[in-house]
Design a protein around this nucleic acid. Structure first.
Lengths: 202, 202, 202, 202
DNA sequence: TATGAATGAGCCTTCATTCAT
DNA sequence: AATGAATGAAGGCTCATTCAT
């Protein structure tokens, strides 16, 4: 069962190299980056990429899955830090924004995928599920604690995560084209918080 | 380029056909749609597309400009309808959302362009300018009237249009992948209004 | 018979404009220069070029004919200047070289045509005839006078013009790629004369 | 690019096939021959040509280099045959002429390149260097031996190779359009020799 | 006479994918 | 497990040519 020597292990390593390289290259040069570029970045041959992944689309799906995990982990880590429920929510939102402001490759790839998804049913479904999961997570992990505190939502609570994520991703795609200046940033974050809290009544 | 006098009417017509076809095709099949597809949709030859536009990128820029004008006109028309300032803003926002919910080709193309802009300096600049203009317009046309009414912004007023447009575009890209249900829609719009108004204090 | 007004005349003018422009453009940008470039240089439309000439090849043939006439006229003018037969020959050779050294458009086009002729039977024939005529002219006009002076050729006299023209055109094509320096030029011309005269015995 | 060790033998073979086919096709149909024609002649796909060479221009440069080597080798082989210095020079010249008379593909391609070089800086430089090298070789290998024999040049010795190569290449391009007849050939070669030797005094 | 418009064939190039090794 | 080699489809673009006006 266990890999005898380095054989099996080597493969997993290479596969991961491809995955990492793909994330970087896709983020840097767009989803139209060629398999060759990825192979170069991974230090492997073009053939190897297709050895590990059936097709470019297949690779893309795995990159997406990986990126989602990474992002989710980071956001949850921020949320799991100590503090009151409101502080925890605030920390999570700050992290979500920071990833977008800094152009984290995971976010870049995901925003590009939204465009591509319209032409790719599988990808559309995958992205849709990821999005629903993210919203569900925000709802269960973040909002329930607020509700438990006595805050009552002014609108159907399901739309709150939708609005929050939309605002963040919208800021991200605009930021790429017309960057938020450091001077604006503080006000912007305050704006997000104000609007977010406005959805609840004390 | 432009016909001197009366000119051959056919040319302007054909050019417009190409432009219209391009908008539709780009919206439908993504920006990677081939020139051939556009030519087919326009009922012209591939050569003709290049007769009217120097390159695919050139065509794309014209499509962008055209799309911006169209969207701006529609939103302004909604705003210019009768009503109190708040009603006017509400109508404008409703229109902005409707265009996104219905997948208007202009909006689709523009959201795809945000992805492409990262790899295309010209496009990035063009989109950036368009975005700044849109924000400026919202600020001057919409928000000033609210301020004039005595509403005072809780944050730097410049970030308000940024937040509003970001939320709308974010909703649009998510909607394409995980549609807002009719049931959600009312709550969603109310959420947008609530958050928007929360940025002001009476 | 005579053109009534300016109608006919205008046409001849335009035709000549095209011809002149073609000579210049072909010399400058090679025979692969586009019809559009020529039309631009002529200040006319692309359609006009095809109105005056059946095809690009047709135009090329006329350019060739025109160029030959021009060159022949210049060389003959040099030869017809005053002087002894040897001086006249020397003057003609000097002119032939000067045209090549200075990259006269007529010469440039003709040397490019030699390459193209291999793929174009008509052009091959046209160039062949032009070449035979040039050789005949040198033979009759130039060499006969030397023979009449008592100089006797050391080889069949028909090969003398061939050698002379070959040397000149060879120098021309090499000159374009590895220019003859002014310092070399005097020696080069002396070399041509020495070798030329060596073909005769006093 | 180059196979590291033993490599896949097929690759080097295929690459050579492309090179050979390109030489033939370029010579036969001119430098404007399409990559497709070359691929067909090589028995490979169009994609394969681009697998082995970055671009058509790249291929052309390699063809040029290859052609130069071939020609140089043949001429040197003729020169290296036994005989007195004068006989050796004569043999080399005879070979140079024979290649041109027979329309050797290497020569055809090179003469076509002279035309193309005017529009292609890289090619111009490459051809210029090749020409200078050829002249230098003639000077060092051929002429020095004549000088060593006591023959003294009548003109700066550097122009002698220029004149010789020019005459040969000039004959070549004219020959393609107005062939040297077998009857003329003997006289022609004698003419070349006479003129060549006339540049020296005993 | 002259031209703007339109065309279609052809070209170079890119690239995901396959396969023998 | 990994890759070099090869392919074929597709794409953007150029351009000589035709034609109605």
């Amino acid at each position: 069962m266990k890999p005898r020597r380095s054989g099996y292990k080597k493969s997993a390593e290479s596969r991961q190299q491809v995955l990492d390289a793909a994330l970087t290259v896709f983020a840097e040069h767009g989803l139209s980056a060629s398999v060759q570029e990825i192979a170069d970045a991974a230090g492997l041959s073009k053939g190897s990429v297709h050895y590990h992944f059936d097709s470019k689309d297949d690779l893309l799906e795995h990159v997406l899955a990986h990126a989602c995990e990474t992002v989710e982990a980071r956001v949850r880590a921020a949320f799991d830090a100590e503090g009151t429920p409101v502080e925890k929510v605030r920390a999570a939102v700050a992290t979500m924004w920071a990833l977008r402001r800094d152009g984290a490759p995971e976010i870049r790839v995901m925003t590009e995928l939204y465009a591509q998804a319209r032409q790719n049913a599988r990808m559309k479904q995958a992205l849709g599920e990821q999005l629903r999961r993210a919203r569900a997570q925000i709802l269960e992990v973040g909002l329930q604690s607020l509700v438990a505190m006595g805050l009552r939502p002014r609108v159907a609570i399901e739309v709150v995560p939708r609005l929050l994520l939309a605002a963040l991703d919208g800021l991200a795609i605009h930021h790429a084209v017309d960057p938020v200046t450091p001077a604006e940033e503080e006000d912007l974050l305050r704006g997000v918080e104000v609007t977010f809290l406005a959805l609840f009544e004390p």
